[in-house]
Design a protein around this nucleic acid. Structure first.
Length: 761
DNA sequence: GAGTTTGAAACT
DNA sequence: CAGTTTCAAACTC
C-alpha cells in the first residue's frame, strides 16, 4: 500500500522523474516477484499491486487530502495544502509558501503576537485581515495539526533522505531543499533545532508576507516570497545550493537515479511514514501538482475562500442538531485525513457571537451536517455537483480538487461568472458585494478566516451566510423573512434582529421551525437560483449568458420593479427571468422572461438547469441527457428530485414533489445551511441567498447539487406548486418554448424514476 | 437614519 | 387556489 502511495507520489510529482518511476516500478516489480514477496502476498489479503496501483492510489490519496482541506475551515484547504507544500516541498518559489509559513508559524505559536497580527492586518485588506485574524482561531487547530503532520513528514523524509537522499525523488528543487535540510538536521540535532527556529522565525516574518500574498493572490510571488522569507529562504537556499553541489558531484541525486536505486527504500520509507504523513504528503503533492499553475492556485484560493465563507454560519446552524453526529461522523469520515480538523473547527473558539458560526463548522448547518453525516453523500455530491460541494463547503471543496477537477473547474467557472456578473452589475446592476465585503466581511471573515472577499462573493451562500445580516423585528428570525434563517445560518452579531431565536442557543427551536417550514415547503430552504453547471462552463465566456443560464426556481412576481432591482429575486440572484416568472414589465438585465433578455430565452435556462443537474449528477455527458430527462421528469412530478444525491433525498423532504412550492428556489445555501435535514445539498447553502453574485455562485453551486433540485427543475415543477405556480405552471416542462424545451420533453418522458427519489421524502 | 416601496412569505 | 396580511429587504430622501 505504502509503496503504492509512494509511487503515486512520485507520479504526482511528475516531471522528469517519471522515468524514475518507471524504473522504480521495475524494481518494485522485481521485488514483488521475489518469493518472499509472494509469500507475504499469500498471507495478506491485500494483493500486491504493481506500479499500476499507484495511479489508483493516488486518487484516493488526493481524496484523503481533500478532507483535510475540508476540515480546515478558515485557513481553508488552501492554506493547508500550501502549508503542507511548504513543509514538505518547502517550495520557496511559490508565493503561497510564504503564506503558509505564516499560518504555520501562527500555528506553532498558537497565535501570532498581537502586534504581528496587527501588522498583518494592516498589510492585509481590511476584509482579509479580518478574515484571517478572526478566522485564524478557528483554523488554528487545523493548522497546527497540519503543521505537526508536516513536521512529522519532514522528519520522516529527513530520515529517509538522510539515508537515501536520492530516494526522495520528489523532486523538484524545493523538495530537494527540504530533504537536504532534513539531512543536515540529522547530522546535527542542534542544527535541526536551529533550522526549525530559523524557519519559525522566517515563518513569522513570512506570515505577513503570506497574508499579503493571499490578498494579492498572485501566484507568482516567488520573488516576494524569497524576500519575505529571508532567513528560512536563505537557509533553504544554502541547503539547496549545497545539494546542487552534491548533485553536481553525484549524479545520483536526480530523481531518476534515485528512483532506480532506492525503489525498495522508497517503499520502506513511505511505509515508515504514518498514514497521516502519507496523507499529508499526498496532499502536499497533490496540492503541489494542482497548484503548480498559477491559475490553478488562484482557483484554489478562490475555492478555499468560498468554502471558508460558506462554512461559517451554515456550519453553525447545523451544529445544533447535527453537531454531535457530525463530529463523530466527520471525525470518522475525515478522520483519516482531517480528523483533527473537524475537532479543530469545533474547538475553534469563536470569538464572537458569530463565532458560533465557527463552532458550527463542526456541526455544519443542517444541510451541511447532513452532508457531513454521510460522507458518501459528500463524495457524491462533490463529484457530481460542485454545488453540493459548496453547501457542504468542506466536502465540496475537497472533492473538487482531487477527485473532480471538473467540478472544480466548474466552480472556478462559477467564480469567473460571478466576477463577470460583477462586471455586468457594474454596468447596470448594483452589486451587493459591498455588504458582504464591507460590513459582513469582517464578521464573516472572522468566522471564516478566509481573507478573500471574492470568495465570499463567490460563495454566495457563504456570502449570504457570511454577509447576511438580518434586521428582523417581528419574525424572531424564525421565518423565511429572515435572510439568515432562510439561508440556513444563524444570526450573528452583525445582525440587528430583535428577539432573535436564530441562534445556536435556540437550536431546538430553529430546527423545529425549519422542519415546520420544510414540511410546508420542502424546498423552502433550497437555493432559489439554480444554475446549470453547464451553462457556467459552457457559457463561460458570455457572462451575460451565465446569468441567464441560471434561473430562479420559483421565478419572481415583480410588478413595479421591472425586475431591475433587488426586489426581484431573479435580478438579485443575477439570473434572468424565466417562464416561471410572473413578473410584469420584465426588464431583467440578466434575461427577460420573454426571452428578450440577454440570455435569451427562458428555455435556455431551463435547459441549462436540466443540463446542469444532469451533469452534476452524471458527470458523464451522455448519461446526463438520460438523467436529466429523468430528473426533469421527476422534477415535474417531484421536486428536484435529487435522486442523485442522497442528500437530495433528505433535502427533498418535500413530500410533494411538485408542491414544493417555489421552494425549490430557495437559496440553496439556506437550504443547505438551514435545514440540513432536508437538503443535504447544503451546497446551495453556500450560495444562495441573496447575494447577487453570490447567488451566481450559489446558482452554480446549486447547479451541481441543487441541480437535483433543479433537475428537478423541479424548480419548474416545484414552482408550479409553489405560489408562483402561475409562473411555474407554464413550467418549463410544458415546453412551450421551442427547441430547448423539446429537449426537456424528452427528458420528462424518461424521467419516471424520480418520484422515488422525491418520495424519500 | 427615517421613511417609503416592493415583493416574498405567511396567513386566511 | 386566490386574496390578504405580514414582514423585512431594498430603496429613496
Amino acid at each position: 500500500m505504502r509503496e503504492e502511495t509512494s509511487k503515486e507520489e512520485m507520479e504526482v510529482m511528475d516531471t522528469p522523474e517519471r522515468g524514475k518511476n518507471s524504473q522504480i516500478t521495475t524494481s518494485i516489480s522485481k521485488f514483488e516477484d521475489s518469493p518472499v514477496f509472494n509469500f507475504l502476498n499469500s498471507l495478506s489479503p491485500i494483493k500486491p499491486v504493481k506500479s499500476i496501483h499507484i495511479t489508483q492510489t493516488i486518487n484516493p490519496l488526493s481524496f484523503a487530502s481533500l478532507p483535510s482541506v475540508f476540515t480546515s475551515p478558515h485557513v481553508s484547504s488552501l492554506r493547508e495544502s500550501r502549508f503542507l507544500r511548504r513543509h514538505q516541498l518547502s517550495d520557496p518559489s511559490k508565493p503561497e509558501f510564504s503564506s503558509d509559513n505564516g499560518s504555520v508559524v501562527e500555528r506553532n505559536k498558537g497565535k501570532m503576537d498581537t502586534k504581528k497580527l496587527d501588522e498583518q492586518k494592516e498589510n492585509l485588506d481590511p476584509g482579509t485581515s479580518n478574515g484571517q485574524v478572526a478566522g485564524e482561531p478557528s483554523c488554528e487547530f487545523d493548522e497546527n495539526f497540519n503543521y505537526d503532520r508536516n513536521s512529522l513528514k519532514d522528519k520522516h523524509v529527513a530520515e529517509h533522505a538522510y539515508n537515501h537522499s536520492t530516494l526522495v525523488p520528489l523532486v523538484e528543487e524545493t523538495s530537494q531543499r527540504q530533504l537536504y535540510g532534513s539531512e543536515v538536521n540529522k547530522e546535527g540535532v542542534s542544527q535541526i533545532d536551529q533550522h526549525k527556529e530559523a524557519a519559525s522565525c522566517d515563518w513569522e516574518s513570512l506570515i505577513s508576507d503570506a497574508s499579503d500574498l493571499l490578498n494579492l493572490e498572485s501566484p507568482n510571488d516567488a520573488e516576494s516570497f524569497e524576500k519575505s522569507v529571508d532567513p528560512a529562504t536563505t537557509f533553504y537556499r544554502s541547503i539547496k545550493n549545497a545539494m546542487q553541489n552534491m548533485h553536481s558531484l553525484c549524479p545520483v541525486v536526480s530523481g531518476e537515479q534515485v528512483g532506480g536505486r532506492s525503489e525498495p527504500e522508497n517503499l520502506l520509507i513511505q511505509p515508515g511514514e504514518g498514514h497521516e504523513s502519507m496523507d499529508a504528503e499526498s496532499h502536499d503533492i497533490i496540492a503541489g501538482s494542482s497548484i503548480t499553475d498559477p491559475t490553478e492556485k488562484m482557483e484554489y484560493e478562490h475555492l478555499s475562500g468560498l468554502y471558508r465563507g460558506m462554512r461559517r454560519r451554515c456550519l453553525v446552524f447545523e451544529m445544533a442538531g447535527v453537531r454531535q453526529k457530525h463530529l463523530e461522523e466527520n471525525s470518522g469520515s475525515d478522520s483519516s485525513v482531517l480528523p483533527n480538523t473537524t475537532s479543530n473547527l469545533q474547538l475553534v473558539p469563536t470569538k464572537r457571537g458569530n463565532d458560533s458560526s465557527c463552532r458550527v463548522l463542526p456541526g455544519i448547518g443542517l444541510h451541511l451536517n447532513a452532508l457531513a453525516a454521510t460522507p458518501k453523500d459528500y463524495k457524491i455530491v462533490n463529484h457530481e455537483a460542485s454545488a453540493s460541494g459548496r453547501l457542504l463547503i468542506g466536502p465540496a471543496n475537497f472533492h473538487r480538487p482531487n477527485s473532480d477537477q471538473e467540478s472544480f473547474s466548474n466552480i472556478l467557472a462559477d467564480n469567473l461568472l460571478e466576477r463577470e456578473i460583477d462586471t455586468v452589475e457594474n454596468v447596470g446592476l448594483p452589486v451587493e458585494d459591498p455588504c458582504q465585503e464591507s460590513g459582513y466581511m469582517a464578521n464573516e471573515e472572522i468566522n471564516q478566516c478566509s481573507p478573500k472577499k471574492k470568495r465570499r462573493r463567490l460563495e454566495q451562500g457563504g456570502e449570504a451566510e457570511a454577509c447576511k445580516r438580518c434586521n428582523c423585528k417581528k419574525s424572531k428570525c424564525l421565518k423565511l423573512y429572515c435572510e439568515c434563517f432562510a439561508a440556513g445560518v444563524y444570526c450573528v452579531e452583525p445582525c440587528a434582529c430583535i428577539d432573535c431565536f436564530n441562534k445556536p442557543v435556540h437550536e431546538d427551536t430553529v430546527l423545529a421551525t425549519r422542519k415546520q417550514i420544510e414540511s410546508r415547503n420542502p424546498l423552502a430552504f433550497a437555493p432559489k437560483v439554480i444554475r446549470s453547471s453547464d451553462s457556467l462552463s459552457e457559457v463561460g465566456e458570455d457572462f451575460t449568458k451565465t446569468p441567464a443560464s441560471a434561473r430562479h426556481k420559483r421565478g419572481c412576481n415583480c410588478k413595479k420593479s421591472g425586475c431591475l432591482k433587488k426586489y426581484c429575486e431573479c435580478y438579485q440572484g443575477g439570473v434572468g427571468c424565466s417562464i416561471n416568472c410572473r413578473c410584469e414589465g420584465c426588464k431583467n438585465a440578466f434575461g427577460r422572461k420573454d426571452g428578450s433578455g440577454i440570455l435569451g430565452t427562458d428555455h435556455e435556462f431551463e435547459e441549462d438547469e436540466t443540463d446542469t443537474t444532469e451533469r452534476a449528477v452524471l458527470d458523464g455527458t451522455s448519461q446526463r441527457t438520460a438523467i436529466q430527462s429523468d430528473i426533469e421528469q421527476n422534477m415535474d412530478s417531484v421536486p428536484p428530485a435529487t435522486p442523485l444525491r442522497t442528500g437530495r433525498q433528505l433535502v427533498q423532504p418535500f413530500s410533494s414533489k411538485r408542491k414544493p412550492p417555489r421552494s425549490s428556489s430557495f437559496p440553496s445555501i439556506s437550504s443547505s445551511s438551514g435545514f440540513p435535514a432536508s437538503q443535504p445539498f447544503g451546497k446551495s447553502s453556500f450560495f444562495l441567498p441573496p447575494p447577487k453574485f453570490d447567488q451566481h455562485f450559489e446558482t452554480v453551486m446549486e447547479d451541481e447539487v441543487p441541480e437535483f433540485l433543479q433537475g428537478g427543475s423541479p424548480v419548474g415543477g416545484i414552482k408550479s406548486s409553489s405560489p408562483n405556480r402561475k409562473r411555474v405552471s407554464p413550467p418549463q416542462r410544458v415546453e412551450t418554448s421551442p427547441g430547448l424545451r423539446s429537449s426537456r420533453k424528452l427528458i420528462l418522458r424518461s424521467i419516471p424514476s424520480f418520484p422515488s427519489l422525491t418520495t424519500n421524502q
